[in-house]
Nucleic acid binder design. Structure first.
Lengths: 166, 166
DNA sequence: ATGATCGTTTAGAATATATTAAACGTTCAA
DNA sequence: TTGAACGTTTAATATATTCTAAACGATCAT
């Protein structure tokens, strides 16, 4: 391959690895995406392995992860047994399918914390036995935990709004 | 401390550690935030160390990180040399001050990749010496990299819109 | 059937990250 | 001017993550 073009590709792959790690993915996952993104044709595991100089196992693992996130998809190449992959270039799809799901799941965790913790609140009979300071502290806890719950609803709304824009 | 209340606090702290790691922070950072969030009064490094059973060094490191993200702030306690911290409870502030900055920085990285990589494009004279297939590949690269740049603008717009909602 | 070619799994090695304990510099009170 | 009380830094350790190489099962051509 022409050294100039190779340099572009390598640099791009490197940067996408960095971008991936910025977003909390494995660096290799980002690199694979970069490689597929700059490939006019689908690539097989072998080719990816050769181009990135990484073990087959790692590629196998990360490309499935990438697929799970909607970053690439398997394509069938006539007359070849190998699995071929191509990049999902519609960024909208990647965002919608997976990233948003993950984001929503994270946001909902906020609400789960409130639900989970409030299950530990003492029954009203038990509350009687608390000292005045303890009663005060308990209601402080309740207040704070409740506002966390409200935040969750807000974030939820924000996400839904955001998704309509995409 | 009353065991019932202690249990609530501990559970809450644990969950916030988990939440923190979900969002790519150090678990301890989340726990510290949880602890401060459920404390009616500001806490000193020592108290945090004692309550979380973690070394002073770790706390020092992570609380500064937390502060950097707008999750807590130092407060002055009259007559005490120690640093005291309290949670930032206005979630809006945390989001605005730091999380959004970080998100914007990440998004802008996408654009930087395009700028950085396109700096490697060969000069037009050099392009002459490329074979027809190479020329084709180069324009393919240019196309893909350009669309990445467009995505960056879109994301940028989305973020700005989102921030207005907050 | 046999062997070659796939992708996957896995146990151990390599690497990166988080944590501790101790040393350190500063500040302040005596 | 000491020394005690702070928060920070750091070097070593512990832990978690990532990666490799080899084993494996499945599929296909012969």
């Amino acid at each position: 391959m022409n050294p100039k073009l190779l340099e572009i590709k390598d640099r791009f792959v490197e940067k996408l690895g960095f971008l991936g790690s910025l977003f909390g993915f494995n660096k290799l996952l980002g690199q694979i995406y970069g490689l597929l993104y700059l490939s006019p044709t689908p690539l097989s595991l072998d080719e990816i392995t050769k181009q990135l100089q990484v073990s087959k196992g790692s590629i196998s693992l990360n490309i499935r992860e990438l697929e799970k996130w909607g970053g690439c998809k398997k394509v069938w190449v006539k007359g070849d047994r190998k699995d071929y992959y191509e990049a999902e270039t519609q960024f909208k799809n990647i965002l919608n399918k997976r990233l948003m799901d993950a984001l929503k799941r994270r946001v909902s965790t906020v609400g789960e914390i409130a639900a989970d913790t409030s299950a530990l609140y003492p029954e009203s009979e038990q509350t009687q036995s608390l000292s005045p300071e303890e009663k005060k502290l308990l209601s402080f806890y309740k207040n704070r935990i409740e506002s966390l719950d409200k935040i969750q609803s807000k974030l939820d709304f924000l996400l839904k709004t955001l998704m309509k824009f995409l």
